[in-house]
């Protein structure tokens, strides 16, 4: 999904004209960018947080040629995923594993797929196997 898909979603669900939806999405990300530029931390509950990390100058190497280069000090944004989204993303992987097990014709036993176990095999015994 890209920014323009996000704009389309906003158009449909919020009944906003396209031009307005474009402006809205741009203002949201521009204000986040401006905040990071000021060196501020952004915290969106249920989503995650962004913070700026400052890097001191250091002597680096071009990994291809091995030539030493001096890297200037820089600032980079870091994103830390929030608890809710972290769990939802991981649960999404579990749901996919359960689905593929069902498609493979596994019996309707309580499937004990451990979280994030996307390697649930499509064997008939897969559903009854206790996962470690």
């Amino acid at each position: 999904m890209t920014k323009s898909d996000l704009i389309d979603v906003l158009c449909e669900t919020q009944k906003v004209p396209k031009g307005r939806a474009e402006l809205l999405v741009h203002v949201i990300f521009d204000s986040m960018e401006a905040s990071l530029k000021r060196g501020e931390r952004i915290e969106i509950r249920g989503f995650g947080s962004f913070e700026i990390r400052n890097y001191r100058p250091y002597e680096g190497r071009n990994p291809r040629t091995g030539v030493t280069v001096s890297v200037r000090p820089k600032r980079l944004p870091f994103f830390k995923v929030g608890k809710e989204l972290k769990e939802r993303v991981n649960a999404g992987a579990g749901a996919a594993a359960v689905k593929s097990a069902e498609r493979a014709g596994a019996k309707r036993a309580p499937v004990a797929v451990s979280e994030g176990d996307s390697s649930a095999e499509a064997t008939p015994t897969g559903a009854s196997r206790a996962t470690a």
């Binding site: 999904m1 920014k3 906003l10 669900t13 990300f29 249920g46 989503f47 939802r88 999404g92």
Partner: peptide
């Protein structure tokens, strides 16, 4: 509106799909 934007992003990521915001 802001809520919708973040909810849409979260739902998309939950499905395992990536989000690309140019810029």
């Amino acid at each position: 509106i802001v809520e919708t934007v973040f909810d849409t992003i979260k739902e998309t990521l939950e499905r395992g799909e990536k989000i690309k915001i140019s810029g």
